[in-house]
Amino acid sequence: MKYFQSLLLLFVCGTTFAQLDGSWQGVLIQDNQNGTTTNFAIWVELIVDGPQLKGSFRSEQANSPYYKISSIIGKINGDNVVIKEKEIVNQNTESGKGWCFLLARFDYNASEQKLKGSYTSETEGCVPGELVLVKSNRAFNRAATEIAEASSLENVEQLLVEKKAVAGKQFVLTDVNYQSGKHNIISSSHAYLDKIAELLKENSSIKIHLKGHTDSDGDDENNFILSHKRAKSVSDYLIKTGIDKARITYEGYGESRSVATNETKEGKRENRRVELLIISE
């Protein structure tokens, strides 16, 4: 993709605007000229102050360390909220890359805490698409993109026994399974998650971040929502075992961070996953 995303957003919401305050995580679905779509992970931080808005916008290029963060300002006017990019405050990008300036209109679904809309851009080379955001339980990330060190549960357990650092270790929850198209964890996965819970109880200083992913089958928006719900289902299970919810954050990436081809059954199986990242000790 020649350009990354920047921001000029128009929200349309028939709701109490204080509900928009906070961190939102989602996906930008770009419509390509060949009829395919490309997904980019995005985050928005909204700070509501009466009729005024300010905050931040972050977008990431899939499977790379490249990202952009911009400050945004806005104003609430009746059922409309206009949000405009003010300036880029941080970025890590390839030489020669530019930023698209987007104009988007969202509908707010209060029951689902979801913002959904489409965008266009007058920037040359930029193409239209859709944006979907859901309310996040994780604070807006201003740091570099997390390219975590891959590991395994057994490796992490051994490092904890040896009292070595485990922050930044990440592993796939290989024995957590779901019914096709569902976010409910099947009962055969409970023993594995109980093991994760015991590990967290024995190491009370550890905090974790869960990342949900899907393959490319199905609708892009539904895949993003499904990945978010699957990560949340793991969080909910661990909380029920007695883990403090303040120790767990989660988010979904849909199909934007594939680790294998989606052209084979084996590749799709690898892409349907929930990852656990240890973010602090």
Rank of each mutant, 00 (worst) to 15 (best):
R272I: 08
D175S: 06
K245D: 06
L46I: 10
I243M: 01
A41K: 05
N34P: 01
A143T: 04
N109R: 10
N271F: 12
K201S: 08
L173Y: 07
A246P: 00
N184H: 09
N177W: 15
N34D: 13
N223A: 11
Q30R: 10
G55M: 07
A110G: 01
E130K: 09
T16C: 01
V81P: 05
A197N: 05
Y119K: 03
Y67M: 11
E251Y: 09
R138I: 09
A143R: 00
V259A: 07
S216W: 14
D217L: 13
G129C: 06
G78F: 03
V44Q: 11
N184S: 07
G168D: 05
K240N: 12
G168I: 02
K232C: 06
Q113D: 12
A139N: 14
L133T: 04
Q179P: 12
V132D: 00
A150K: 07
E221G: 04
A231L: 07
P128L: 05
L159D: 04
A62M: 03
T93F: 10
I239G: 06
Q5P: 10
I42A: 15
W43I: 05
S136F: 02
E157H: 04
K97R: 05
L226Y: 08
V274F: 09
D79T: 12
I47E: 03
W43D: 15
H228F: 07
I206H: 09
L102H: 04
F106E: 01
L153F: 12
S187I: 07
N203W: 12
Y108A: 03
Q19D: 14
E112P: 11
I206S: 09
K2W: 02
Q5C: 13
I47D: 14
E263C: 02
E154P: 02
P51V: 02
V134D: 08
L159R: 11
L199M: 13
D175Q: 05
Q61V: 13
T120N: 04
I147K: 12
S70Q: 05
V172F: 05
G78L: 03
S280Y: 06
V161H: 00
A165H: 06
C100L: 07
R257I: 06
N80I: 07
E154W: 04
I76D: 11
G267D: 01
A246E: 11
Q52A: 13
G96N: 06
I88N: 10
T264I: 09
D31K: 12
M1R: 02
I88R: 00
N34T: 03
E94L: 14
L200P: 14
D79W: 00
S64L: 10
F171K: 01
I76K: 03
Q91T: 11
E94P: 08
F57K: 00
K68A: 14
V172S: 07
Q30A: 05
Y250M: 02
V44E: 07
E198K: 14
E221A: 04
K2H: 08
Y66H: 09
I88E: 02
H190A: 13
A165D: 01
S216V: 13
G242I: 01
A41M: 11
A62Q: 13
S151P: 01
G168E: 08
K207P: 06
K114A: 08
K97I: 15
A110M: 06
S59E: 09
H228R: 04
S152P: 14
K182C: 07
R269N: 15
E251D: 14
Q25V: 01
N137C: 01
E275A: 12
D219E: 11
Y178K: 00
G212L: 03
C126G: 09
G96H: 13
Q158Y: 09
G50D: 11
